[in-house]
């Protein structure tokens, strides 16, 4: 026992508990700092436009990041999320243009997202392929699929005569509703059900998970289905916003989701320290940062350097809760 702890315990305060609490609050501190900077940028007078724009921009990333937390908690990552969303958008628009209506479009987006997740999970769980590199290959497959679906055109749009119902969905409160409902469902699933606990055990130590009777295949499939549903919902919201898909739709979304989750304090190795809030906090932080930089007029290459420094600083601070003594590495194969 260190002298520090002995002294502290004499005073009735366990410093370790306090330090632990502070570490858990660090990602929130990062978000709080960005909120303060945002308020400064708006001269402490954010308007309803600021709030609406923020919600519009953050919704897609927040939903996808929250879904991706389940995969992260297994110690894996799916880099094909962005392209998967683009394929869902494409098929959703095709369904709507064919007369499926808004509900039909939503269902198509959801089913396609989950189907892509299912394929990824089968490759991972049944064929035991390393998830990260397998999703790199799937990213190419999905990109090529998207280009084939676009069939030689630059973009595919919602038919002009049918666009009004879609425009009606372009509503920040609807988006907020989707985010809140999806987050609450995931919060319950991740923290209060066996499914969530099994995910953390599997991420923490797959051998222990197997020995305790957790079916790795079943758990992996469930995880990717949840992430796939997030992709489908995000695709639906993307259609409401841009009403078109191109070969480059969602191209950076996969990396953005990864950065958002890490920004939010999620350990890449997953396991017991995984937090369902990481997706939401990280997404909020990234969108705030992007808006702050634009409002300050910092939009050239140097802004990327600032972003990089901030990203590393915030992640460094947030990682105190889960870092180990040895150099961090992961099993890639």
């Amino acid at each position: 026992m260190s002298a520090e702890t002995v002294t502290a315990s004499k005073k009735g305060i366990d410093l370790r508990v306090v330090m632990g609490m502070l570490r858990r609050l660090l990602p929130f501190a990062g978000l709080a700092l960005l909120i303060v900077l945002y308020l400064i940028s708006t001269n402490f007078r954010p308007t309803s436009l600021h709030i609406q724009t923020f919600i519009d921009q953050v919704a897609t990333m927040a939903i996808m990041s929250t879904g991706a937390v389940f995969i992260f908690s297994l110690g894996s990552f799916d880099i094909s999320l962005g392209v998967g969303a683009a394929v869902s958008v494409c098929l959703g628009i095709m369904a709507y243009n064919a007369g499926a209506g808004v509900v039909g479009m939503f269902l198509v987006c959801l089913v396609v997202g989950m189907a892509i997740g299912f394929v990824n999970s089968v490759l991972s769980a049944v064929f035991r392929m390393p998830v990260f590199v397998m999703t790199i290959a799937m990213m190419s497959v999905l990109t090529a699929t998207l280009q084939i679906l676009l069939g030689g055109k630059t973009d595919l749009r919602v038919t002009t005569t049918m666009v009004e119902p879609i425009k009606a969905l372009d509503n920040p409160y609807l988006r907020l509703g989707f985010v809140l409902v999806f987050f609450l469902i995931c919060l319950v699933l991740f923290n209060f059900t066996k499914m969530g606990r099994r995910n953390k055990v599997l991420g923490g130590n797959p051998k222990v998970a197997e020995q305790t009777g957790i079916s790795i295949a079943k758990q992996t499939i469930l995880t990717f289905l949840i992430s796939g549903s997030a992709v489908g919902i995000a695709a639906f919201l993307l259609i409401a916003r841009s009403r078109a898909v191109t070969a480059n739709t969602g191209v950076s979304l996969g990396m953005d989701v990864m950065m958002a989750i890490v920004f939010g304090g999620m350990p890449l190795a997953g396991g017991a320290y995984s937090k369902i809030s990481a997706g939401i906090i990280g997404s909020f932080s990234m969108v705030l940062l992007s808006q702050i930089l634009t409002m300050q007029g910092i939009t050239t290459g140097w802004s990327q350097v600032y972003k990089a420094v901030l990203f590393l600083a915030v992640v460094f601070v947030a990682s105190f809760s889960y870092r180990e003594k040895m150099l961090s590495r992961a099993e890639m194969f």
């Binding site: 890490v262 890449l268 350097v305 460094f316 990682s319 150099l327 590495r329």
Partner: peptide
């Protein structure tokens, strides 16, 4: 001492 995937994202940016 962060996962190299994370530091490499920052370095790439």
């Amino acid at each position: 001492n962060l996962p190299p995937m994370i530091t490499s994202l920052g370095v790439a940016l």
